[in-house]
């Protein structure tokens, strides 16, 4: 599985808030590179040069970019100038603006002036939790990866169409052979929704596409039960009604990683 590379451009890279985000990005399995201008006196222009050079040199998969780079009045929106250059030179490169200006006129100016509606650029508040930063970056970099890890014990390989499980964190992931065909498709849908947004529920109407016969809902229920039995066996635990795949108010299902 290729490791994603995230470039962090922030003048406060030693701050606890940036470090917490950096650690969470590493936990996600991503490489982080911090852009540091050569000069001791960090002004916006030096960040601009260093950032563009680093993108050229490192070819990152995503960028986390602050808006205010330096304390000078002219540097207040330097990050937006860097953003404009990135959008112009590397239009496909996902950029997450990590800033206190996540809303309001600064964001609106940047958005109206430089971006098209489908540009892979988003804004997030500096007070956002590291988890929120990871989720937002995941979606910017591609909502359906080939490999979806669900907690430490389950892994969905979309390309190979397999679900693997292990009972211990240190153990080896073993494919669960019972989950294939329609059952795999159902589990893949649930895993992809969870990966995009852990609170996302997949409505019955979407999952019923993978059911057969006139009683699509009943058939879906049976398949979900079978998936839970197979995965419970592979994980060595008994999965109850509120574990792993949960029916939410009879509207759809959502995935919750197994608590082990």
């Amino acid at each position: 599985m290729p490791v994603s590379k995230i470039l962090i451009i922030d003048d406060e890279w030693e701050s606890a808030i940036v470090k917490a985000v950096q650690r969470r990005l590493r936990d996600e399995g991503w490489n982080t590179i911090i852009v540091q201008p050569q000069s001791q006196w960090m002004v916006g222009e030096e960040f601009e040069t260093a950032a563009i050079y680093a993108i050229e040199d490192e070819r990152p998969d995503g960028v986390l970019l602050d808006v205010r780079l330096g304390e000078h009045r002219d540097d207040q929106f330097k990050g937006l100038e860097i953003l404009r250059q990135i959008v112009e030179r590397y239009p496909a490169l996902p950029v997450l603006m990590f800033t206190q200006y996540a809303q309001g006129p600064a964001r609106d100016t940047a958005v109206r002036g430089a971006l098209r509606w489908n540009a892979p650029v988003d804004f997030i508040d500096k007070l956002a939790s590291p988890e929120e930063v990871v989720l937002r970056l995941r979606r910017l970099m591609g909502s359906s990866p080939d490999i979806i890890p669900i907690g430490a014990h389950l892994l969905v390989d979309v390309g190979a169409e397999t679900v693997s499980a292990r009972q211990d964190r240190a153990g080896t992931l073993t494919p669960v052979t019972d989950i294939h065909g329609m059952k795999f498709e159902i589990f893949r849908e649930l895993a992809a929704a969870w990966y995009r947004s852990p609170g996302e529920l997949v409505p019955f109407s979407r999952l019923e596409r993978y059911s057969e016969g006139e009683e699509a809902r009943a058939s879906l229920r049976v398949r979900i039960r079978e998936i839970k039995v197979s995965l419970g066996k592979a994980l060595g635990i008994q999965l109850g009604a509120n574990d792993l795949i949960v029916n939410v108010r009879d509207r759809g299902y959502r995935l919750t990683p197994p608590q082990m």
Binding site: S197, P198, G199, P203, V248
Partner: peptide, 24 residues
């Protein structure tokens, strides 16, 4: 909606509350 749920999921989980969303 996804962004808002991202923001409040942890807070809700800390308070033993569940927050879900769907679209049709």
């Amino acid at each position: 909606v996804r962004r808002i749920v991202d923001r409040y999921s942890l807070v809700a989980a800390d308070a033993s509350k569940q927050i879900v969303w769907w679209s049709e």
